[in-house]
Amino acid sequence: MPQQDLYAHFHPDERAFVDRAWEWVQRAAEYHEVRRTDFLDPRQAHILFTLANRHPDVALRLDGGSPDAERRRSLVAPDYRPLEHEPIGIAVLSVASDDRRIGELDHGDYLGALLGLGIKREKIGDLHVREDGCHALIAEEIGDFLRTHLRQVHRAEVSTEVLPLDRLREVKTELEESVISVASMRLDGVASDAFRLSRSKIVDPIRSGRCRVNWKTVEDPSYALREGDVVSLKGFGRFKVLAAEGVSKSGRNRVRIGKFV
């Protein structure tokens, strides 16, 4: 495939991953290799899926350990290789504590503790946070290391255990819904209301590449959002456009959004 065609539908920042993913696809087709990747975010999974579909001799399986998983590992293989029973290499790290402050910990606390041990983000899947602890989906090859070394999350002392996938206690993602009124569906307008920032303060982070829509970097403040879009702004969180609920008498758009909590 010509190089320019390979990059045609992807952001320039994604070229390094596109190159890696295309190499996995080519090696599966030409050298009959089976590649198990680290956890991919939804945008990376989409890129790999798109590239794999361009090659008739390649099969792909994506699995995050639960049906609604956001981050997933993949298996890339020649098309004659059945993948449904291939080990995906995901385990559950159970984090618990007798410290009553465990109930105050959030997603960022657990993720920060794991990354603070030198673990790459790509080795960690979804985190299922509960009041009594957390079940983190992890690459099984780092299970023993985490079980031995993770002893504290924020200020709470914790104990850990590595469990098989069928012991996962899944927590559904919660959205804090609200209705905002905006002049249009422009990214900067919706995001400024969602994050409660002035329009002037939202534009610079967007233009500097800190904003993603559906896990793809978007640097144009005038980008038009649609229902179902997931918007993240580094340092501020993320929200989903749930519904466009019509136009008010004053001509403004009513938009229902859900902020991830």
Rank of each mutant, 00 (worst) to 15 (best):
L83H: 11
R199E: 04
D99I: 02
L48V: 05
L168E: 04
I124N: 05
I88W: 00
I202T: 15
E84V: 11
E84T: 13
I138Q: 11
A156V: 15
V213Y: 08
H85K: 15
G246D: 04
E30F: 09
A52S: 15
F239G: 12
A29T: 00
R35P: 00
G258S: 08
Y80N: 01
R71C: 02
V58A: 05
Q44L: 05
R256G: 04
L127T: 08
H149Y: 15
V25M: 02
A156T: 11
G246N: 09
Q152E: 15
L51T: 00
P87Q: 00
P67L: 04
K259V: 14
R73L: 01
L137R: 03
E161Q: 14
N214K: 06
R210K: 15
N214H: 07
V158P: 02
Y80S: 03
E70Q: 05
A21G: 07
R54Y: 10
L225K: 06
V190F: 05
F17Q: 02
Y7L: 11
L117P: 02
Q3S: 09
E157G: 13
M185Q: 12
H154Q: 09
R169G: 06
L165G: 13
L163D: 08
A113T: 04
L175T: 04
T148C: 09
V241M: 09
I102M: 15
S184R: 01
L114Q: 13
V241E: 04
V261G: 13
A136G: 08
R254V: 01
I202A: 12
T50D: 14
V58N: 07
S181H: 10
R238T: 03
L51G: 00
E219H: 01
A113H: 07
G209R: 09
L165K: 06
D41Q: 01
V261H: 13
S97Q: 05
A224M: 14
A77D: 07
V153W: 09
E131W: 04
A91C: 06
I180Y: 06
H107C: 10
L117C: 04
L60S: 06
L146R: 06
S184G: 01
D57P: 00
V92W: 05
G103D: 10
I124V: 15
F260Q: 04
K120Y: 03
A244D: 15
Q3L: 14
A91Q: 12
D41V: 05
Y7M: 05
R169Q: 14
R36Y: 05
A96D: 03
S250G: 10
Q4T: 07
I142P: 08
A52E: 05
K216A: 13
A16R: 13
G133A: 07
E174L: 06
D126C: 06
R256Y: 11
R43L: 01
H55S: 11
P2S: 07
L175I: 08
E157H: 14
R100V: 08
A156S: 12
D99H: 12
S159T: 13
A244E: 15
P56L: 11
D63M: 02
V18I: 10
E245I: 01
F145V: 00
R27H: 10
R81V: 14
S181Y: 09
L115V: 08
L175C: 07
E177R: 14
A45Y: 02
L225G: 09
S184Y: 00
A28E: 03
L146D: 12
K259E: 12
D99V: 03
V213S: 11
L60N: 03
P87M: 00
